[in-house]
Design a protein around this nucleic acid. Structure first.
Lengths: 247, 247
DNA sequence: GCGCGGTGTGAGGAAGTCGTGAGGAATCGG
DNA sequence: CCGATTCCTCACGACTTCCTCACACCGCGC
């Protein structure tokens, strides 16, 4: 659920927006003046800010500048003023959109969706915890979470241990087929995925009996992700049926 | 210099926009119908699209949908229609902004700046540290950071020409294609960017199999930015998948 | 104990992908 | 017209990924 901060000094408009946004399943925070808006964003950064420029305490432009000093949260400006210079000033201060009052509520909702969509494409995806590793499916990335307390710092010589000695966030390298299998299993947490379904969805319907290859790649995944590949804890085998990701 | 594609069937408006945008040092492409717009974006993807919805051949909404199928280029819609339903339709189809005609040219310019800023600073700060170099995405500049040579004996025998030793302002020159690849990778730090996506977003959807060119330009980037181009540390290859910028 | 179906592991070669260099086309400015 | 720059294409060696085969292991029923 996305959270939206609405900043306006007219409590009637504030209530109307709150009702409309709640009806669309947004979480709504409100602020009545610029100072409250700045502290609200600092306390709990929202996903979108809807900002009326006609505030009683601070000039709305200064609120934009204050926010842009440290955050890129999308800002949609509401304003009763229609003159072009004011729009230019607000947009150049860092606002992302400008809507003049009176406005159509459906248009505002559409602009909020556009702002959220814009933000979503640049954000890293949700991460799945898998034992000592973190899997980020959209980024195609697996990183080790807790640095093993054991003496892993032994490999000092210049050997190219992939991901072991490079940086503080050691990454795990998976091959294309391993990624496809892992993604399919992780998309159904706790559920059994039949062998023939894995084969048809990854290799195509013509290879639905190539269980050898499947076992080969499952072994690769366990070797890279399981603490004890011989006794897997997350990528389990269901004999005669298929495989299961146990969260 | 940013390139803008303006799509409109009124040649008078087209000319006025071209003059105004050129005066602001934008590079301007034009198209007078939807088919020309789609092919123009596919041929040379611009940095922003300004799209009139009242086109003679294709419905403007379908142009938006066609573009959003493969690119995230910002789209600013121009339209003579003021009804809210139409705005909602365009924004939900994937447009980033909606301006009703007649519009104030200064407002349109400010919205173009907002779209470009959003793209340039959506996920990261202004300057990115990449080994011995600093990359400034908005300014399109790469400069050498520390005058000290690399930490691991970066001096390659007989090669000291690339702008580092000559002047007191050590800058690295990248070609336009190299810039696009680098910007796309750096905008998703740590994430894997598939070869297919690099090709479609930079060359257009018609060249989605030209991996030869991609390898050619990646080699150029590594030669200019990596201390040891044969063993890259920041621009990594994921065989069979794509490339990754490792911060 | 013994066969049996399904599974995990290792080694070999086939197939595909990547890095690099050279040659030539296209574009731009003078 | 020429030169410089950028880009694409082709070819070859090196590497990664993948499949196949063989064999050991485990639980099960007889």
């Amino acid at each position: 659920m996305n959270r939206i901060l609405v900043v306006d000094d007219e409590s009637q408009l504030l209530r109307a927006l709150r009702i409309n946004l709640r009806a669309r399943h947004y979480e709504v925070d409100t602020a009545h003046d610029g100072a409250a808006a700045l502290s609200a964003v600092a306390r709990r950064p929202p996903d979108v800010v809807v900002l009326d420029l006609g505030l009683p305490d601070i000039d709305g432009i200064d609120v934009i500048i204050g926010l842009r000093g440290w955050t890129q949260v999308p800002i949609i400006v509401l304003s009763g003023r229609t003159d072009g210079a004011h729009k230019v000033e607000a947009l150049d201060a860092g606002a992302d959109d400008y809507v003049t009052k009176p406005f159509n509520i459906d248009e505002l909702l559409a602009r909020i969706r556009a702002a959220l969509r814009h933000r979503a494409t640049s954000d890293i995806g949700q991460q799945i915890i898998l034992g000592a590793y973190t899997v980020d499916l959209p980024a195609h990335r697996v990183t080790r979470r807790c640095p093993t307390p054991g003496p892993t710092g032994a490999d000092r010589p210049g050997a190219d241990q992939p991901g072991a000695s490079a940086s503080g966030q050691p990454a795990v390298h998976l091959t294309p087929t391993e990624w496809k299998i892992l993604a399919l299993l992780l998309r159904h947490p706790g559920a059994l995925v039949e062998s023939h379904r894995l084969l048809t969805e990854i290799w195509g319907p013509r290879y639905h009996t190539a269980t050898d290859s499947l076992r080969f790649h499952i072994a690769g995944l366990r070797r890279k992700l399981e603490a004890d590949p011989a006794h897997p804890r997350y990528l389990l085998t269901e004999a005669g049926l298929g495989y299961r990701y146990q969260p």
